[in-house]
Write a protein that binds this DNA or RNA. Structure first.
Length: 714
RNA sequence: GCGCGGUUAGCUCAGUUGGUAGAGCAACCCGUUUACACCGGGAAGGUCAGGGGUUCGAGUCCCUUACCGCGCACCA
């Protein structure tokens, strides 16, 4: 056995990822083994991971680097273990997220979407995502991802849209989707409604105004919404107000003149807070809306969709609420209606998670998903332990959310997304699902109808991703690979995506879409700070792989990083693993050089210490296989690093030098070197696929497989 | 307000069912020997956030306090 010609020269230089990685990836891709249908042997048991579709609105960031690494480790491990392994890649149009990115681009160019033809805008964004997609796919390849490109999906693919429509229709018929005229969260900058998850609570210090409202003093932080307030609410048990009765009319002087107010008694009022009395603005406050619903009160819009005051505000009509407040207060003061102002009022304000604009609740007619029935089924499955959560505490977080779930507004007033296949009656606001486009008048009142111009919340479609990508219901892939094995994604989208996939997946297919949920933490910068463009501390994973090699990046991102905790990404750490790749390279050189003219027997005879080392390695294999099955990659990677360097290189190789030189127990030493190298290359492969595959290609032996399909030693 | 994490060496973090505290990086000393200076050998470094409890024994289990991070919430 000899080192094949030409390879010896290469081994004499340090390991060079740059000249290796692209070539090796091509070798893998051309082998066809990324596709489970092409894998050799009789593989009965499937192993499936659906890749979280990557947002096609930018390029790969550090978080993606972690995703690709962890999922590739799982997939390569299972492939080597003989599973029929599918890792299905995808790209996400990412609705609102992408539109926000594109709007920023427009802004820079001095344009705005509000002056564009929606079709034109859609086409521009589509082109934008197509360009990004191409780039992203090449970046995923650079990470070494062994996913099946032949099954790649995009969230706007025709059959995806079709499947989403089917789901929408089915839910409508089952009464799980309804058109509701309800209070929703509205961002006046982005001009769209949101679900509760797109809202960020922000703590602020504002002024708190105590105003004279007839015989009462009411307190508010938003005087600009108070123009139409004609109901004054207090707790039925509040002794201070026991002389006032429910429904009692009171004439009083208000901002723009005399009004007649009605007393309402409601237990929701907190007697301890403020003065224990408040007026309500049902159109622009969720709690007030509920009170109004409960008592069947009038609701009146005060603020329009741009955040400007409507004619009800009288002289202030047309002014933006932000600007109007001081002059409203001034007027109130002149009228003697301001009792006092507390300037250090700390409270929580709901804001748009993208732009920080204060959310203005509005009453609008939208599509909602009735969540309770869906959540109950999901809860049952989760509580039965049918889904394995890693880390486990995410289970509690999920069930808490499911226990307190609210109906989901899935209408978005943006163009970039899947349009909602429905007709809306302009007279009675009735909504009708219409996939075939054959409804011409309102089915309820016979009135005129229009096409719903809204698009779906992007999570409504991606919530169906696992079964759609596999071709539910008839495709063989669905029958073979569903339910999938692992859903690996970020803990930050546990409600947005994971919980909804469980609910929608179970609703449509009758099965939970995945058996294990593996949630990684945030990737932070070297100082453990959140990466952000404004801070300028964003680390591009591709720069690190360029500098130190993909293998080094992968090791650096895995070793010692317990699941779910955030990860500080430091170039120093990555550099350390570049050295590791080189160490492996040189150790391989030594082994190959010293076993050139040696043929390893089937059952090598070891001397005492070598036999002990051989046994130790076998024990290590057992240990790490168990840990791989427990998803403790952070431990396995560290152990392998340590064993390779400080046992194999420092002890076994050093020891072998004496034996081989003095030709004393040389055969034992050579056999041990050889078998150790082979075993270690195999188990290191899922972590550092490039350098191990490259060395493997230089190993002697005829009809050799690619390392990626070699059998995992256990 | 409620909930969930975290606090271990200078830094970043491991520590499986309780049994003499571990790694990487950094710093320190020495060293060119069949691979590798992207290296080898050696030494140093910790009241495991504070307090209390259970136990023969606690970094690990229980209670409590503080601080950091995150999530959820209709207190006007």
């Amino acid at each position: 056995m000899k080192i094949s010609n030409g390879m010896e020269d290469k081994l004499l230089k340090p390991y060079d990822p740059k000249t290796t990685e692209e070539r090796i990836y091509k070798l893998w891709e051309e082998s066809g083994f990324f596709n489970p249908d092409n894998l050799p042997g009789d593989r009965k048991n499937p192993f499936t991971i659906i890749m979280p579709p990557v947002n096609a609105n930018g390029s790969l960031h550090a978080g993606h680097g972690l995703v690709m690494t962890i999922e590739d480790i799982m997939v390569r491990y299972k492939r080597m273990q003989g599973f029929k392994t599918l890792w299905l890649p995808g790209l996400d149009h990412a609705g609102f997220e992408t539109q926000v990115v594109y709007e920023k681009k427009l802004e820079k160019e001095g344009r705005t979407r509000f002056e564009m033809d929606p079709k034109e805008l859609y086409k521009e964004i589509l082109d934008f995502t197509l360009v990004n997609s191409k780039n992203i796919k090449s970046q995923i390849r650079k990470m070494g991802a062994s996913c099946d490109w032949s099954r790649e999906k995009f969230t706007l693919d025709e059959n995806v849209v079709k499947a989403v429509y089917q789901t929408f229709k089915r839910m409508y018929e089952d009464g799980l989707v309804y058109r509701g005229n309800r209070i929703i969260s509205w961002c006046s900058k982005h001009q769209t409604s949101f679900s509760d998850l797109e809202i960020t609570d922000e703590e602020r210090t504002d002024s708190f105004y105590y105003l004279k409202y007839g015989p009462f003093t009411i307190a508010t932080s938003r005087p600009e919404t108070k123009f139409g307030d004609k109901y004054v609410v207090m707790h039925p048990d509040d002794k201070r107000y026991q002389n006032y009765t429910d429904g009692q009319k009171i004439k009083l002087e208000w901002i723009n003149g005399p009004i007649e107010a009605t007393v309402i008694k409601d237990k929701m009022i907190d007697m301890e807070f403020g003065t224990g009395v408040m007026t309500i603005t049902p159109w622009h406050d969720t709690a007030d809306f509920e009170i109004a619903e409960r008592h069947k009160l009038d609701k009146e819009q005060i603020i329009d969709e741009n955040g400007k005051l409507l004619p009800i505000a009288g002289e202030f009509a047309g002014q933006h609420i932000k600007k109007a407040r001081p002059s409203i207060i001034e007027k109130l003061q002149k009228k003697g209606l301001v009792v006092k102002i507390d300037e250090n009022y700390k409270h929580v304000v709901r804001t748009c998670y993208k732009c920080g604009t204060v959310i203005e609740p509005q009453i609008k007619s939208q599509w909602f998903v009735k969540m309770k029935p869906l959540a109950e089924k999901a809860l049952e499955k989760i509580n039965n332990g049918e889904i394995n959560y890693i880390p486990e505490h995410y289970k509690k977080i999920t069930t808490y959310w499911l226990d307190n779930i609210m109906d989901w507004n899935i209408s978005r007033q943006i163009v970039w997304g899947i349009s909602i296949p429905a007709k809306i009656c302009i007279e009675c606001k009735h909504g009708m699902v219409d996939l075939e486009n054959n409804i011409s008048k309102c089915t309820k009142c016979g009135g005129r109808i229009i096409q719903d111009s809204d698009t779906f919340d992007t999570w409504f479609s991606s919530g169906q991703w696992p079964f759609i990508t596999l071709g539910y219901p008839d495709n063989n892939d669905f029958k073979t690979f569903y339910p999938t094995d692992v859903m690996e994604t970020g803990g930050d989208i546990i409600f947005f995506w994971v919980a909804r996939m469980i609910m929608l997946g179970f609703y449509i297919t009758g099965e939970i879409p995945f058996k294990t949920v593996y949630l990684h933490g945030m990737v932070l910068d070297a100082k453990s700070q959140k990466m952000s463009k404004s801070k300028g501390n964003v680390i591009d994973p591709l720069i690190l792989t360029e500098q130190f090699g993909t293998d080094a990046f992968r090791m650096g991102v895995v070793v010692g990083n317990t699941v779910g905790t955030s990860l500080a990404l430091s170039p120093d750490k990555i550099r350390g693993y570049k050295n590791f790749a080189n160490k492996i390279w040189n150790a391989a050189r030594f082994v190959l050089d010293n076993t050139k003219d040696y043929t390893i027997p089937e059952n090598p005879k070891y001397d005492e210490e070598d036999a002990k080392s051989n046994k130790e390695l076998k024990e290590l294999m057992k240990e790490i296989t168990k840990e791989m099955d427990e998803y403790k990659f952070y431990l396995v990677a560290e152990k392998l690093y340590h064993y390779f360097w400080h046992t194999f290189a420092d002890i076994i190789i050093e020891r072998s030098k004496k034996k081989i030189l003095k030709n004393k127990n040389a055969d034992s030493a050579k056999a041990l070197l050889f078998t150790h190298l082979i075993t270690l290359l195999k188990v290191l492969h899922p972590f550092i696929p490039f350098v191990t595959e490259e060395i493997w290609s230089m190993m002697p032996g005829k009809n050799k497989n690619l390392l990626m399909i070699e059998k995992w030693p256990s």
